[in-house]
């Protein structure tokens, strides 16, 4: 018996050390990740100065210009375009599935949307480049040029006669298509958590479908919905391959959204192979900035999720 207890204690100690070791290893990796990006960013910070990195509006590695404004703007702009398209479409899709759609095709539609989410980003990229870009140039771009493009003051930003194909808009569109299923399934899951009897009681008061959604379903589902949207935005910020394919990677200011542009990820992807010295450091600094922007976004989502869950 004593012998057995000894064995038990020994094995318990070993398994504790092994599991704790695995956990610690991952923590160490995360710390190293930050450390490596910081250390490798140092040369460019030292070389051109931190102020210049944030204020110089040129990204021209050959001329020692490493201003992050353009790639950062590109990342934010494409994400903004994606959000403007995907948030209403994603929420609308989820509402259609859980509120309006005939019960028979409800499950099929749900699975279809999840299929859309499982497709790897390289496939979105190839398709975006070879299929969506021409489709957009032929149909969507003229449509936007003829509508939003006619607006006073801001119209010129949405209008272009050139059909180049690769552009900030197409990048935003591909990102939108990638995050629609994400937003839709988050929204659907939160809608499903609204108790059926609450929904019924709104209808029992004589509310229309729209009023039930507006006054009961969406307020109840708001927490999950907001968390989903912020997570989706985080995804769009860091998406690499799909954007690298369709944005045309041109780090120059654009006059309208139908011109090629550059994002943080497309810049890193396009340049790292030929880069050396300070240039590499500049690219890793971009990665660091992306990591920071992304972390802030995720923290925001988590905070929102936690704050609202107490109500």
């Amino acid at each position: 018996m004593k012998h057995l207890i000894k064995k038990y204690n020994r094995n318990d100690k070993i398994s504790k050390i092994l599991t704790k070791g695995s956990g610690m290893l991952f923590l160490l990796i995360v710390i190293t990740l930050f450390a490596v990006l910081l250390i490798q960013s140092y040369p460019v910070i030292h070389h051109v100065g931190i102020l210049d990195l944030f204020t110089n509006s040129a990204w021209q590695p050959n001329h020692n210009h490493f201003g992050i404004i353009i790639p950062l703007t590109g990342t934010l702009l494409t994400t903004l375009i994606a959000g403007v398209i995907a948030i209403p479409v994603g929420i609308g899709t989820a509402l259609f599935i859980s509120e309006y759609c005939p019960f028979k095709i409800r499950a099929i539609l749900s699975i279809a949307i999840e299929l859309l989410a499982a497709i790897p980003s390289i496939v979105y990229g190839l398709w975006g480049y070879k299929s969506l870009a021409p489709f957009s140039a032929n149909y969507i771009q003229p449509l936007i040029t003829n509508t939003l493009g006619k607006l006073p003051f801001v119209g010129s930003f949405f209008s272009s006669a050139d059909a180049i194909g690769t552009s900030a808009f197409v990048a935003g569109l591909v990102l939108a298509i990638m995050i629609i299923p994400f937003i839709a399934s988050f929204t659907r899951d939160s809608l499903n958590q609204v108790p059926a009897v609450i929904r019924e009681s709104a209808f029992a008061l004589g509310a229309t479908h729209y009023e039930v959604v507006r006054d009961v379903m969406l307020p109840f589902a708001m927490r999950g919905l907001m968390t989903g949207i912020i997570m989706a935005i985080g995804r769009a910020l860091g998406e690499t391959m799909a954007v690298a394919y369709v944005i045309g990677n041109s780090p120059h200011w654009i006059n309208n959204i139908f011109q090629p542009f550059a994002t943080i990820t497309s810049t890193i992807t396009a340049e790292f192979k030929e880069a050396s010295g300070v240039h590499i450091s500049g690219l890793l600094f971009l990665a660091l900035i992306l990591l920071i922007v992304n972390t802030i976004t995720i923290l925001l989502a988590k905070r929102y999720a936690n704050k609202r869950s107490k109500v």
């Binding site: 190293t32 990740l33 490596v36 990006l37 997570m231 985080g234 995804r235 910020l237 860091g238 998406e239 690499t240 990820t265 890193i268 992807t269 790292f272 690219l283 890793l284 990665a287 992306l290 990591l291 992304n294 972390t295 995720i298």
Partner: peptide
């Protein structure tokens, strides 16, 4: 939720 490109550049 960290973008995979970050992990790539880190190992790079």
């Amino acid at each position: 939720s960290v973008p995979s490109i970050i992990v790539g550049t880190f190992i790079f």
